[in-house]
Amino acid sequence: MPAELFKALRREPDAGTNVTAPETARPLIDVEGYNFYYGSKQALFGIRMGIPEKQVTALIGPSGCGKSTLLRSFNRMNDLVEGSRHEGNIRLGGRSIFDPALEVISLRRRMGMVFQKSNPFPKSIYENVVYGLRVAGQNDRRTLDAVAERSLKAAALWDEVKDQLGESALKLSGGQMQRLCIARAIANNPEIILMDEPCSALDPVATTKIEELIFELKKDYTIVIVTHNMQQAARVSDWTAFFYLGRLVEFDGTKKIFLSPSQKQTEDYITGRFG
C-alpha cells in the first residue's frame, strides 16, 4: 500500500540519486548524541544523524516529537528559550556550533531559516530581502540591489514584485510572504536553509510553488525541512528522518522510508495507522 501511495505522490518517479545510504553521503551537519531539555523536561534523546550536503532532508513525526526542537538547535534559536539546556554536540562542517569562539550571529548567517508562520518585517519588500546584509553592515546600494534581485529570483518572486519593491511586505499574499521569507533567508548566501513547516499555513497552489522552489534550491543549498505532511516529505526530500517522542526512530533515503521502512513504528506512522 505505501508503495502505490508513494508512486502516486512522487512527481519525479526516477529519483535515482537518493539510493545511497546516509553513511556514505558527506554530512554537512553532524549530530552527535544530542540531548535537549526544556527545564526538567527532556525533548530530545541521544539524537545521532548526519545531514548530507546539497540534499533535502525531511524531519517528520507527530506533534511534540522534537523535530522542530532539533531544527532550532541547528542555528541555536533554542538559546532564546528560558531554562533550556543541551548535552552532546552538533557539528557544522566539522566544527562544533557550541564552540564559545564561534559567534552565534555568524552561525546564523550561515543558516537561513524559514518559519511556519511567515514573518516578514514591517518594512518594504526590498528592505526585507536585504535585512541580513544591512544588519551585517553592508550598505552599498549596488551590492544590495544585486542581492535583492538574485534572492527574489531564486525565490521565484521577482516577476511578481519587481515593480513594487518599495511597498510594504505586509501587503503581499500569504504564499508571496512565505517566498519573501525564503528570499530573505537566502540573501545572506547561507550554506543551509532550515524550514520549519513552511507550507502549513498555505493553500495547495502556494504549497506547490514552495515545493517547486525547494527542488530548485537544493542545487545550491543544503535544506532541512520539518513537515507534518508526509506527502510533502515524499515529494521534496532525498532523505527522511522519522522522530517519535524525542527519539530518532529511523533515518534513511526517502524512497526507502516510504517504500520499505525497517521499523514497524515508521511504517505505522506513514500509512496512517498510528495512534
Binding site: M77, L80, S106, G112, F115, K117, F121, Y131, V135
Partner: peptide
C-alpha cells in the same frame, strides 16, 4: 515570530 525572523537573519 518577527523577532525570531530577525535573529535568524543574524541580527543582534
Amino acid at each position: 515570530g518577527t523577532r525570531e525572523g530577525s535573529l535568524a537573519c543574524g541580527a543582534s
